[in-house]
Design a protein around this nucleic acid. Structure first.
Lengths: 167, 167
DNA sequence: TATTGTTATACTCTATAACTATA
DNA sequence: TATAGTTATAGAGTATAACAATA
């Protein structure tokens, strides 16, 4: 797979983070697939459960676009895990509620995820595990060098006009 | 940004890895943009430099599709950083060479990346830094729980036939 | 006029299929 | 027949624009 030496790989922080992130995401998706939901479904469902939020509020909380939320809720509602109820105070808005089946799925998902994290972090001795997590929180936390996700997520994503379609 | 408590965030391994990976990728892209290249450009350019590889070999080494390599090399060649030369032994194949400008850019990029990594890891005390990197290598390494990227990268990505276009 | 949720659609990214020229 | 590189394009994901109903 990788023809580089162990030292070279250890020095490649981007590779280490990317691989860790992707591999864990893949295992997470596989695990949650047994419950017929995606990681995003879990994210939305678990956040919707407690509070009575509108779609827009939920989208903001889950850091996704409102149009992506529409698609996600369409599927969750179709699968009987969530429900859209008209807001009593604003006839434009719709409150997202988790169904009983949804609560059950979220509970099972929590167990699945806990087991996954335990399995992954279990390979590290307890002491090293704590140091590792502390370091990760330091890097990613509000004052850390990996705090911001800002800038250049992809490309401008602007709609093409006749004049901008130069490339 | 994140309304969760510090403990909740510390317990969310997916979030920590995703944010670390994305934030570092963003900083990397920003840094390399000053040299007018993308992270992928650097990856290809640095691997092409030493050996005299064909496009296909280079694509395999860089873990990308040969069609993606074509697009990448089109741009690198257009920018005068790489060159395609006919293979002396196989008239179908083309050897990828790094130009003098390409070598210069790679050298500058290495410095930029080294500085970035030093800046990021510099927030950790030396001892913690070593424990952290050891742990990361353990998790991601060949015998670790985050070794494989396998399975379900996205969706099947098969061309639609009349019968499969059910969804 | 501004905002909520929806629909339609455009843009990026990446990979599959088909093609040309060799082997 | 099989393979290297190319081109065309499909598929997935996600965001922008426009719209209807309501504030």
């Amino acid at each position: 797979m990788d023809t580089r030496s162990a030292e070279e790989i250890r020095a490649d922080l981007s590779y280490l983070f990317d691989k860790a992130s992707q591999a864990l995401a893949a295992r997470m998706a596989d695990s949650l697939a047994t419950l017929r939901i995606s990681p995003r479904d879990y994210c939305v469902l678990s956040k919707a459960g407690s509070a009575a939020l509108t779609q827009g509020e939920l989208a903001e909380l889950a850091l996704m676009d409102k149009t992506t939320m529409v698609v996600t809720l369409d599927r969750l509602e179709g699968d009987g895990l969530a429900r859209r109820t008209p807001s009593p105070t604003d006839r434009r808005a719709r409150i997202v509620e988790t169904t009983d089946a949804g609560y059950s799925t979220v509970a099972q998902a929590r167990t699945v995820i806990d087991n996954l994290y335990a399995d992954v972090l279990g390979v590290l001795p307890a002491e090293q595990r704590e140091v590792f997590l502390d370091a990760l929180v330091t890097l990613v936390g509000p004052d850390g060098p990996l705090s911001e996700v800002e800038a250049t997520p992809n490309a401008p994503r602007r709609r093409a006009t006749r004049s901008s379609r130069t490339q």
